[in-house]
Computed example of a mutant assay.
Amino acid sequence: MASQAVRGGARQVKPLLSLDNEEARKRALNLYKAWYRQLPYIVRQYDIPKSVEQCRQRLREEFKKHECLTDVRVIDMLIIKGQMELKETVHVWKQKGHIMSYFKPTAEPKPTDFLSKFLQGVN
């Protein structure tokens, strides 16, 4: 009875695209290369006020953010989303504001004490 519960809990799931981590890694590298090659055209076409190197740095940061993932299904889903984003960007189905949203500065924490709130004019 207990062995059936263990087998039921560790159920095998159907992969989305990749069968193992190595294949998912190759797909992620191919997506990175595709974005890397398209960045000069994207910068020129959308006329964004960033250099190609700044865009490549931001691309690197975005991929590094997800480097700790190990679940193949999650990696595949992110790859699918990245491919969709690339297609939308290359076909100019986005506007300049969508592209610039990737460069948003990090939000500053709101003040918590009375004096900081008073000086910033926050209620």
Rank of each mutant, 00 (worst) to 15 (best):
A2L: 15
D71Q: 09
S3D: 10
H66W: 05
Y46F: 11
L59Y: 02
G82R: 03
P15S: 08
G121E: 06
L16H: 06
V13G: 08
V52P: 08
F103C: 09
I79E: 01
E85I: 02
D71M: 03
K94C: 07
R56F: 01
V90R: 13
I99A: 05
L115T: 01
C68I: 12
C68A: 10
R11K: 14
Q57Y: 00
R11S: 10
K14T: 14
I80V: 13
I79Q: 05
L19Y: 01
Q45F: 09
T106N: 06
M100S: 03
K94E: 04
K94M: 11
Q38A: 15
L59N: 09
F103N: 07
P111T: 06
L69T: 03
R60P: 02
V72G: 00
K117I: 01
T70Q: 11
H66D: 05
K87W: 00
Y46P: 08
P111R: 04
K14Y: 03
Q120K: 13
P109E: 00
Q12A: 07
F114S: 05
Q12P: 06
D71R: 05
K81Y: 04
K50L: 13
I75L: 04
H66V: 14
G9Y: 03
K94F: 01
Q4W: 13
R73N: 11
K110P: 01
E61D: 10
G9R: 10
T70S: 09
L119K: 08
F103V: 11
V72K: 08
L29A: 02
E61L: 10
G9Q: 11
R56Q: 05
T70V: 10
C55K: 10
V6N: 04
N123P: 15
D71I: 06
F118W: 07
N30R: 15
Y32E: 03
K87A: 13
K64A: 14
M1K: 13
Q12N: 03
I80W: 00
E108N: 06
